[in-house]
Structures are given as C-alpha cells and as structure tokens.
C-alpha cells in the first residue's frame, strides 16, 4: 500500500515541527548577508509559518483552516527560563506552547514588523513574526528530539489517519549532548522516526547551515563525498517520500532515487525553499 499519500484537510490535519538550533555558533555571520545565522534562520521560520497560514486562508470572513498543528522547539539558549536547554520557540501569547493549531498561530504572532527579504533583495515588508533570533550555549540536539518526540507521539496517537508528522531540524553545529539519557543521537532519531500514523513513519529532515560560502548540496542520494557533517546527517535523515520528490522536482531540483531529506550549506533563500518542499504534503489523494 502506498504511504505518504494522505492529503491534508481539517478532518485529517498534518503536523509540522521545526527544531531550531539556538546555540552560540548561530551568532556567526551568514555569508555576505551581514546578518547572523540566527537572524536568517528565524526569518526563514517566520516566512514558512506565514506561507502555511496563507495557504490555509481561503476566503474573506472565514477563519484560517486547521490544516496543520505546528511546533517550533529551540535548543541551545533558552529565553523563557534563561540557561541552556530546550523550549518552545514561540514568543508572545504562544510562549511555552507545544503544538499549536494553525488558526491559533495565525491569530497570535508575537509582533508584526518590517522584515528584510529572505533572498537579499533590497526590499522589506511588514510581516508577522512568531520566532526571534536567539543564540547562546551548546547544542543539546538529543534533548530537542526527545521533547519534540513526546509531542509527536501524542499527536500521532490522536491522528492515526493523517499524513505522518514532519520534523525539520535546522542546525549549524554538532550535537553536544549525545549520549543523552543513555541513548545516542542516532537512537533518539530512531525513536522519533518509529512514531507512525497509518500513512507512514515520522519524517526527520536536516538542514545544515554554514557561515561560509560553499557549494550547497540539496537532497543528496549518496553520502559518499559529502562534506562533514554530511555523512552523519545523511544517515539520520529520512528518505524523501514521493510527494516531496515531486515537489522538489517541480522546484527544479534533480532528485535521484534514494534522496534524503537533507540540505547542506544552504543560503537563506534555499533554506526557505527546502522548508517549503518539506512541508508541502499531498493536496489530494491519488
């Protein structure tokens, strides 16, 4: 039976979780942007959240449709209880919340403010903001997967017929808390991706940011020759399911069989494109 074919609707909503690295190294400047990795990552996350809200907006005098439950969990510097750890990255009214239904997300950005263009065009626009750039401390990625996994587990149990949860990890560094609670990073990822709905296993994708301007590698199908930490992240990343392969090809990527949900050394606009490909699930069953 085909998997990863369930369309997203209000009766069968999807789940998107973004793990956002807020470690100290995210303070580094991102290529020629003049802004830090943390600023660029937060901008991309706010853009993808806005994209999702817009997609679920269908008519005047009608609420944003509940197509997704969304969680953003940061790891590294915490804001709500200062120190190192994992927390919900939402600010404002949603601070501390785990998975938030899309209509509620649309209602409660922490601010609406002038933000620069993600693709470095010399323009800016007023847009809603849910997540601020933050950096500090180390990279407790295992804890982040543990926290996200608990939310994903409960969600999958409550939505057995939905498209499986999509977890996207945005990071610039190496895990610093493996092993955590007796389990390695690989073990935590294995636990996460063993959570299933009837439509398939939880998807875990990785996007690695580099402050240096080096070649981008998007959706590789072979770990051989990938720059560090590419081979490790390749092993951790789920194979792209067919609907996302189709999305990527429509967006111009030459995706080969066996391609993983992995992007290395991406720029800001590619980060957003990968987030868009990774969060676009089937419109309708076929």
């Amino acid at each position: 039976m085909d998997r990863y074919r369930q369309s997203v609707s209000r009766s069968e909503p999807g789940c998107v979780v973004i793990l956002l690295d807020r470690s100290d190294s995210m303070k580094l400047a991102w290529g020629r942007t003049g802004a830090s990795l943390a600023v660029g990552a937060a901008l991309a996350v706010n853009n993808i959240l806005l994209d999702m809200c817009i997609k679920a907006t269908t008519e005047v005098n009608a609420p944003v449709r509940h197509y997704f439950d969304v969680g953003i969990f940061s790891y590294g510097a915490r804001v709500n209880t200062p120190g190192e750890g994992v927390e919900s990255a939402f600010g404002g009214v949603l601070a501390g919340r785990g998975l938030v239904p899309l209509p509620e997300l649309a209602e409660h950005p922490m601010a609406v403010r002038e933000e620069p263009s993600i693709d470095l065009m010399p323009v800016s626009a007023r847009m809603p903001v849910w997540v601020d750039p933050v950096h500090g401390y180390r990279t407790p990625m295992c804890q982040a997967i543990e926290v996200a996994g608990a939310h994903v587990f409960d969600w999958a149990a409550g939505h057995p017929n939905s498209f499986p949860p999509i977890v996207i990890n945005i990071t610039d560094g190496m895990v610093t808390d493996s092993p955590h609670d007796g389990a390695s990073l690989h073990d935590w990822v294995k636990r996460l991706t063993s959570i299933e709905t009837n439509d398939g296993a939880t998807l875990f994708f990785n996007i690695f940011l580099s402050p240096f301007e080096v070649a981008e590698i998007v959706f590789p199908s072979d770990p051989t020759g990938l720059p560090a930490p590419g081979p490790d992240l390749f092993e951790l990343s789920s194979p792209l399911p067919q609907p996302m392969i189709d999305n990527a090809r429509v967006d111009g990527y030459d995706v080969q069989p066996g391609a993983r949900g992995l992007a290395l050394n991406v720029g800001r606009s590619t980060l957003l494109r990968v987030l868009q490909i990774g969060t676009r699930v089937p419109d309708r069953p076929r």
Binding site: T57, T58, E59, R284
Partner: peptide, 8 residues
Amino acid sequence: TQGFGSAR
C-alpha cells in the same frame, strides 16, 4: 482548493 475566494 489552494486559492483564495475559489468558490466565488
């Protein structure tokens, strides 16, 4: 489905 005001 993914448009705005599609029914109208």
